[in-house]
């Protein structure tokens, strides 16, 4: 699949410090990339550099084959951006915000009006179309801003914190909308967020930034393979696994470790194929197995493990969640 976005050694500093330091990554057509990291990680700077509103101090990028530093307007004609703050003019109505943005994008007045009406319908804002944005909720503003980003049917969408400030129901709505948008016409989506749930649901690949440096980039399972050997499988035997049974399981080929759990044990297996052998061994030993679940680590697990690795490198205290993950997988067998 051809890369739609490519960045090589992208670097940008501000008087306050380095915002992005040597970022190299690529995003394929139709892919959803989650740019993850805490505040100040460099996510927004990455979007601004890729969309050509900031210039890189070093390195280069191409978006849809165009260099944003050279042909920024060319790039921006084919990208849509949802900024962290919805960026709608509160004094204008929802319709005016969309229609005037379409015209500012060079879309003909009649087409702009039609496209606005269609998008307001699609995003469930038709009933508020002619009311000032001032009275709308944060969720409605995000939906409007998303609609605005789609006025010109862009090939690439940059979404910067699309669910920040939303309540759970509005978050679910927006995540569903983004999921639908990402699956349309092979559209490429770069999703900047520090909410891991939405990233986990939507992203094909993830990039973890911390203080402007890229610490991990790839599919969650590939990053997980670098972090840990094998898969964790949760066994439910209706109570803590006995020592003899645990020793029998540990002796099986493809089993790297066993750790007790209140309802059974966590078993590290080389791959999924080992799990039926583990179950059969336990059943033959007279241990009832009520459930066996071998799941690859989630994006959230991977993110916190990467964060923990960064913290360890920097000599910082590891967050309880990250410590739990690392301990669970690396040290608790």
């Amino acid at each position: 699949m051809p890369a739609v976005i490519e960045a090589e050694d992208l670097t940008r500093s501000f008087p306050s410090g380095v915002a992005l330091d040597g970022l190299s990554l690529s995003v394929d057509r139709g892919e959803v990339l989650a740019l993850l990291g805490p505040n100040g990680a460099g996510k927004t700077t990455t979007v601004r550099l890729l969309n050509g509103i900031l210039r890189a101090d070093r390195g280069r990028a191409t978006v849809l084959g165009l260099d944003p530093a050279v042909d920024g307007d060319g790039v921006r004609r084919r990208t849509g951006v949802l900024t962290e703050h919805a960026g709608l003019d509160e004094r204008l109505t929802a319709r005016e915000n969309l229609e005037l943005t379409a015209r500012m994008r060079g879309i003909d007045r009649t087409v702009a009006a039609r496209r606005t009406t269609d998008l307001l319908e699609r995003f469930g804002m038709a009933d508020r179309a002619d009311l000032p944005v001032q009275g709308t909720s944060t969720g409605q503003r995000k939906r409007l801003a998303l609609a605005r980003a789609l006025l010109h049917d862009p090939d690439v969408l940059f979404l910067d914190e699309p669910t920040s400030g939303l309540d759970p129901a509005a978050t679910r709505d927006v995540v569903e909308l983004i999921g639908a948008l990402a699956s349309e016409h092979g559209r490429t989506v770069v999703l900047c967020t520090h909410f891991l749930g939405e990233a986990g649901r939507l992203a094909d690949r993830m990039a973890v930034l911390h203080r402007g440096v890229l610490h991990a980039f790839g599919r969650p399972e590939d990053i997980a393979a670098d972090l840990w050997d094998g898969l964790d499988a949760r066994l439910d035997v209706g109570g803590q696994l006995g020592e003899d049974a645990a020793r029998a399981v540990l002796g099986l080929p493809g089993v790297a470790g066993v750790a007790p759990l209140p309802e059974g044990a966590m078993v590290r297996v080389a791959d999924r194929e080992v799990l039926p052998v583990v179950v059969r061994t336990l059943v033959e030993a007279g241990v009832p197995v009520y459930g066996a679940d071998a799941r690859p680590p989630s994006l959230e697990d991977v993110y916190f493990a990467v964060e923990a690795r960064i913290a360890a490198t920097e000599g910082r205290e590891v967050t309880p969640r990250a410590a739990d993950l690392l301990g669970h997988r690396d040290g608790g067998w």
Binding site: N51, I53, D73, R76, H85, G87, L88, M104, R105
Partner: peptide, 14 residues
């Protein structure tokens, strides 16, 4: 101030 500048800058306007 109104936080509308960034979305304006992201438009393809010379």
């Amino acid at each position: 101030e109104r936080k509308t500048l960034e979305s304006l800058l992201h438009l393809p306007i010379p």
